[in-house]
């Protein structure tokens, strides 16, 4: 089985994120870059599948030079090879352009399974897996809390409010996974050393056969007009219970649209 896992480098989940004033894109220098947490579940699921059934895991990432660290992280967990799409022309790409680049990098490589985390912790749109599936003309099994591969049949449980749906499709297929699916492993010291010797191909926009004008900030279908820093934490509201405390709390929650 040949599995691709698409991963993204995001600013450290715990760090305060900032946008750059000049073009309203993420200031990647302001925080440490880490492997998107939700993608770790996808890497783990891929590793478990090949540990059980044999095969190869290729990590695919689009991002600036330093996103290479994120590919290495996935390789140190146990993935076999990486593909890094890196090109200044891609800076500021929206989900549509990102999906175009990923689809080009993935197509024709014979992947049976293309795995994604269900969303990135920075953009949080959850649309790239569906867009890539659409561009490649493949079935999409999204938000999986369980994945089973039986020959060429891929079956998932899709998490739902009422329980789960069972969905299946024939490989090749695009699957996105939720955090419930597994517990991602830590790399090992030996894994980190081994990762340094694993192959990582780099691809540019030209290598992918994309027109530079179709990607990047200028081609984005949405734009950030303005942004403001989060206001500092204000003092809390104290409600003294004079017998009507419960009502006052309910009123407050209702004003804040919590209830």
């Amino acid at each position: 089985m040949k599995i691709a896992v698409c991963v993204k480098q995001v600013p450290d989940t715990w760090a305060e994120k900032r946008l750059k004033p000049e073009d309203s894109t993420l200031d990647r220098e302001s925080a440490e870059g880490v492997l998107n947490e939700l993608d770790e579940y996808a890497v783990e699921e891929a590793l478990r599948l090949i540990e059980a059934q044999g095969g190869e895991v290729v990590v695919v990432s689009m991002g600036p030079e330093r996103a290479g660290e994120t590919i290495r992280k996935a390789l140190s967990m146990g993935a076999d090879a990486g593909i890094h799409i890196v090109d200044d022309a891609l800076h500021g790409s929206d989900a549509i352009a990102t999906s175009a680049a990923l689809a080009k990098a993935l197509e024709g490589r014979g992947f049976d399974l293309i795995l994604f985390g269900s969303e990135s912790t920075d953009a949080r749109m959850s649309v790239v897996p569906a867009m890539v599936a659409e561009r490649l003309g493949l079935p999409q099994l999204t938000f999986a809390q369980k994945v089973e591969v039986d020959g060429s049949t891929v079956r998932i449980e899709r998490q739902a409010e009422y329980g789960y749906d069972s969905i299946e499709a024939s490989a090749p297929v695009v699957v996105s996974v939720v955090e419930k699916i597994n517990e991602p492993r830590y790399p090992s010291f030996k894994g980190i050393m081994a990762a340094k010797k694993k192959p990582v191909d780099t691809l540019t926009v030209a290598d992918l056969g994309l027109e530079p004008v179709t990607v990047g900030l200028a081609a984005a279908w949405s734009a950030v007009d303005e942004f403001a820093a989060r206001p500092p934490k204000a003092a809390g509201t104290v409600i003294a219970d004079d017998g009507a405390g419960g009502v006052k709390i309910a009123d407050y929650l209702s004003q804040q649209k919590f209830i």
Binding site: Y186, P187, I192, M193
Partner: peptide
């Protein structure tokens, strides 16, 4: 650099687990 990677791994596990 190997030692630096090792300390990085240690910090990750220390903070996470």
């Amino acid at each position: 650099p190997k030692a630096a990677d090792l300390l990085g791994l240690t910090r990750e596990i220390a903070a996470g687990e």
